[in-house]
Design a protein around this nucleic acid. Sequence first.
DNA 1: ATAATATGGTGAT
DNA 2: TCACCCTATTATC
Length: 264
Amino acid sequence: MPEGHTIHRLARTLRARLVGQALGASSPQGPFAGGAVRIDGRVLDRVDAHGKHLFLGFDAEWVHIHLGLFGRVTVVDGPAPTPRGAVRLRLVGDEASLDLRGPTVCQLIDEADKQALHDRLGADPLRRDADPDKAYERLRRRRLPLGAILLDQSVVAGVGNVYRAELLHRAALSPHREAQHLKEHEWVGLWDDTVRQLRAGARSGRIVTTDREHRERPTGRARRLDAHYVYQRVSLPCRRCGSAVLSGELGARTIFWCPTCQGR
DNA sequence: ATAATATGGTGAT
DNA sequence: TCACCCTATTATC
């Protein structure tokens, strides 16, 4: 379930549990973890994250991980459990271990490779070095709908399909709006909210974008939280105004929006 | 048992 | 624009 918040949350967990330790590396359901098992026995120095990319530093080398759509990382305290499912990379520390399943990318890279990735990636709302002005410049140069631009990792790094739909709804912006027509104050508002939302997601580990007053109080056994205004709610009522939510294709993914709150 | 689905991205056409 | 890669879970027969 990886958008940028997941990766940054994971980075924090790893800094707390595994950094500074010599790790045992293996690939139980191998055969390959992109050469990452070669760091077996080495000390994990530091962990970095940019958008949906995770970097595990071992001296001058990095294990570069991208979870893609299906990838998952689990970190458990105590002895490493019997491997379940297709574990591509297992890292075992003193008191915790990590299992990686289904990644799109897991490879050993050097500093230059890593730098090339940073250069290719846009402003990450969860990084201190994020440059929203630069993101705005890039965004305005493109002749694409705002909804498509938000998924472009070279503009904003870390926003995925859930946050895209929810952030545009929160900003009352139509996903079909031409990005080049976006006013500066509109961008600033959108960016600031993106930072807030991803931070909350990284803290909680869940994507909950609805404001408190829009969440139904969970009652009885079925404690389903009303976490989204429009995402995955085709034909269901928008949680702000009640209009039927629409969906369509945008940027090769399904976009959800409210025709009343977001125009068109 | 089999299919459909999912918070992603790449490379070929 | 399409095919394709990766995995686990849920829905459908």
